[in-house]
Design a protein around this nucleic acid. Structure first.
Lengths: 212, 212
DNA sequence: TAGATTGTTAATCGATTAACAATC
DNA sequence: TAGATTGTTAATCGATTAACAATC
C-alpha cells in the first residue's frame, strides 16, 4: 500500500484521480490565480469534500479563507506525478495501437521517453517510426538487460500477451500499460494499468440500449 | 438508473464488468463445459460472491450443484451486450488514434459498424481508410441527420472537443466514447465513456515510483 | 474583525464479501 | 442420497459526504 503525507495509506481510487486534478490545474493556469474546493468540485463534477480529502493525502496545499493557488498546485501535482523526470518506455507491438502511441507526442511532454518498439514481423524490423527503431521481439530480453526501462506498453495480440509479459517481468520491468485484449498474469501487487477499449465501447453500448 | 432482472437497479460498476465476463466465457468456450463461481472467481481474481451477485442482476443463469454452462453463459452475455445487432459508429478525428481505431477490426466482430470518419484537414478529406471515407467535419451535422448513428468516437484535440460534442448532442447522438484529452460537457446522465491514456500512464508511473 | 475556506473527523452511503437455505 | 453450488440476504468493509473547529 502506498503511503501519503503522514504515513496514511492512499486509496487506489485517489491515486487514479491524481492525473485528472493535474489536468484541471493545468487548464486553469493562466485563467485565474486561485480556486476553492467548492468551485473546483463544481467544475470537476464532484464534491468539495472529495477535492479537499484527495489533495490532503499529499500535503497541506490550501489556505483557509483563500483556497488553492493554481500555479502552486500545478507545480505540486507535477512534482507528485514526477513529470519532470525522464522515464524510459518501450512499446511491444507495432500494429495499429502501437504505431498510434509511438506518434502520440503528449507522452514526451509528461516525461515519457520512448526508446524502442518491438514486433515479430520481419518487414517492420529496422524501420523507424517517429524516429524510434523497430526491433525484433527476440531482442527484447537483451535490450531490457542493457537499458533502464520503467514501463512497457503492451499492444500485442492476446494470444502472445502473456508470453511477452513473462519476459518483461523476468527482466525487471517496473510497470505495464496493457492495451492487449486479455488480462495479464502478473504477480500480486505488480503495477499494471489496463486499457480495454472493447470493454468500454461494449459497456457504453449496453447503457445506450438500456436507456431506451 | 438501469434496471435488471426484477426491476432492481444495476450498479454502474457491475455494468462496466460485463464485457470482462464476456471475455472470460468467450475464452473458456471450447476449453470446458461448465464452471463454478468459485473457479471463475479465482480465474478473474475476484470473489465467488461477486461473480454470482453480478450475474444475478441479469438472470438466473446457474444451476445448483453444477455451476454455469459456458456455452449458455457466452450466449446470454452476447445477448445482454447486444453483440448480434449492428450499431452504427462514426469516428471524429483522423489523427493517430482515429486512424488506429479505424483499422481496429475487432469492433466489427462485436457488432460495431464504422460508417464514416471526420476531420478538418483538407488533404485527408476524400481518402479511404480501411474502406471508410474521410469526410469534412462541416458535413457532420447533415450526416447525423441523414444516418442513424448510435456512437461517436471522439479523437480530436482537446481545444475543439466540446465544440464537436455540442454538434453531436444537438443531432441526437446516443453515446460518446471519448479519447480526447479533456472532460466533455454533456447533459447529466448522458452515456459517455472516457479513455484517458495519459491519466492511466501517469497513475502507473506514480505507483511505480511510490513502490520504491 | 467578519467572512471564507481549509484539513480532518464523524456520519452516511454503496459495494463487496460471508453466510446459508434451497435445490440440482 | 450426499455433495456441490446456486441466488439472495445480512454483515462488513471502504469510499464519499457532511459537519465543524481552526485560522487565514
Amino acid at each position: 500500500m502506498i503511503k501519503g503525507k503522514d504515513g496514511s495509506n492512499i486509496p487506489k481510487v485517489v491515486i487514479e484521480r491524481l492525473p485528472r486534478y493535474y489536468r484541471y490545474f493545468d487548464r486553469l493556469d493562466g485563467e485565474m490565480e486561485k480556486i476553492s474546493s467548492k468551485k473546483l468540485g463544481e467544475l470537476m463534477d464532484t464534491s468539495a469534500s472529495q477535492v479537499r480529502l484527495d489533495l490532503s493525502y499529499f500535503g497541506d496545499f490550501g489556505q483557509q479563507g483563500y483556497g488553492y493557488n493554481i500555479k502552486k498546485l500545478k507545480r505540486e501535482l507535477a512534482n507528485i506525478l514526477d513529470i519532470e523526470t525522464k522515464k524510459n518506455v518501450i512499446i511491444i507491438g507495432a500494429g495499429n495501437i502501437g504505431r498510434a502511441l509511438t506518434r502520440f507526442n503528449a507522452l514526451k511532454e509528461a516525461g515519457f521517453n520512448l526508446t524502442a518498439l518491438f514486433d515479430v514481423k520481419p518487414i517492420l524490423i529496422g524501420e523507424r517510426l517517429n524516429n524510434v527503431l523497430i526491433r525484433h521481439i527476440d531482442e527484447l530480453s537483451s535490450y531490457l538487460e542493457s537499458h533502464d526501462i520503467s514501463i512497457a506498453v503492451l499492444a500485442v495480440p492476446k494470444a502472445v500477451a502473456n508470453k511477452v509479459v513473462k519476459t518483461l517481468i523476468e527482466h525487471g520491468i517496473k510497470g505495464i500499460l496493457n492495451f492487449s485484449r486479455t488480462d495479464l498474469d502478473v504477480p500480486k501487487g505488480f503495477p499494471i494499468e489496463n486499457i480495454h477499449i472493447m470493454d468500454k465501447i461494449l459497456a457504453l453500448s449496453f447503457i445506450i440500449r438500456a436507456n431506451k
